Amino acid sequence: MAHQHNHTEGGGNRNRLLAAFIVTAVFMVAEVAGGILSGSLALLADAGHMLTDAAALLVALLAVQFAQRKPNARHTFGLLRLTTLAAFVNALALLVITVLIVWEAIRRFYQPQPVTGGLMLVIAVAGLLANLLSFWLLHRGSEEKNLNVRAAALHVLGDLLGSVGAIVAALIILFTGWTPIDPILSILVSALVLRSAWSLLKESFHELLEGSPSSINADKLKRDLTLSIAEVRNVHHVHVWQVGEKPVMTLHVQVIPPYDHDALLHRIHDYLHRNYQIDHATVQMEYQPCGGDDCDLGHSGHQHTHHHHH
């Protein structure tokens, strides 16, 4: 395998994701078995984490598949939004698992369970190695800023810490026999899961609500465009949102009637591409100030309310 970057839009990503998925799924099963046999909740917490890892990887795999499908008349963006929805569902699943583990941990403080430290240690170390392997696989693919690959890598990172927690608990049980350390560390592992789930939930929810990408400030963009291009007097009706990883934008620009309409339009597109990395912008150029109701989405239509006589 020479160092070739096959940028057939996610081909390399797919193989890495698939490998990481297989590693994670196999070790998740091992951790569940180990957790049940040794009676360790920290292992089960880590396995729960690995389950969501495997789900995250599966989602990312599907996303890569969907991203390769061509847009059609019904889905003009292709199915890229599915990836965002998948990240969102994934984050919700993480939250549910966290609650279950914490609930069980609290129960175990009241009724301590016997834990086999030796078996627990072996499984935890194996889990750590599996995580290192899948993290390495994913991180070679992280130059593509893909929300799902990032989500998956985030999970695996949290999972690394989870395995470390299980190892620590196993060592303490082996040397001191103090079993409450097991539920204590399972709660810590859950806190890690919670943190990654929360940020993922926020990010994907924002995208589902057509929020503008965090890197783009619409007000600043309006000012910059007016200042940078002499013919542009006013920029309004600006909408920026994100589909998959691509920012998409529509805007109205009021301009001084140019000598060459297309050249000015080209300069505006070029400016957006250079300064904001927006490749897909729809620009409506106007010579008069915009006077219609349609200039302000969300505020139009309220003047029609008095027609409804009962």
Rank of each mutant, 00 (worst) to 15 (best):
Ala63Cys: 09
Asp296Met: 07
Leu138Phe: 07
His239Ile: 06
Val240Asn: 08
Ser228Trp: 01
Ala86Arg: 05
Gln111Lys: 10
Leu200Asp: 03
Pro114Tyr: 04
His280Lys: 10
Leu61Met: 15
Arg14Glu: 13
His310Pro: 07
Val232Cys: 09
Trp103Asp: 10
Gly244Lys: 06
Leu85Gly: 08
Phe21Arg: 03
Trp198Lys: 07
Ile172Cys: 00
Pro114Phe: 02
Asn15Cys: 05
Leu209Met: 15
Gln111Pro: 00
Pro180Asn: 05
Asn6Trp: 11
Thr250Arg: 01
Leu194Asn: 02
Trp241Ile: 07
Leu85Val: 13
Leu225Phe: 08
Lys145Cys: 00
Val89Met: 14
Thr98Arg: 01
Gln113His: 11
Asn131Ser: 07
His5Gly: 04
Leu138Arg: 06
Ala91Asn: 08
Val168Lys: 00
Gly165Trp: 00
Arg267Lys: 14
Tyr271Thr: 03
Ala152Thr: 00
Asp279Tyr: 10
Asp279Trp: 06
Pro257Ile: 01
Gly291Arg: 11
Leu132Asn: 03
Phe205Gly: 13
Leu297Val: 13
Gly12Arg: 12
Leu137Pro: 00
Ser40Asp: 05
Ile97Ala: 08
Thr250Ile: 12
His307Phe: 13
Leu80Ser: 11
Ser214Lys: 12
Thr282Gln: 10
Tyr271Asp: 03
Leu201Phe: 13
His266Glu: 14
Gly117Arg: 01
Arg233Tyr: 10
Thr98His: 00
Leu58Asn: 03
Ala230Ser: 15
His280Arg: 10
Ile181Tyr: 00
Leu44Arg: 05
Val255Gln: 09
Ala33Pro: 03
Val283His: 04
Leu128Pro: 08
Ala166Arg: 06
Ala93Glu: 00
Leu174Gln: 11
Ala105Ser: 12
Gly78Thr: 04
Asn148Met: 05
Gly298Trp: 01
Val99His: 05
Met50Glu: 04
Ile101Trp: 04
Asn131Phe: 06
Ala45Thr: 05
Leu138Lys: 09
Gly34Lys: 05
His75Ser: 11
Leu265Ile: 04
Ala67Trp: 02
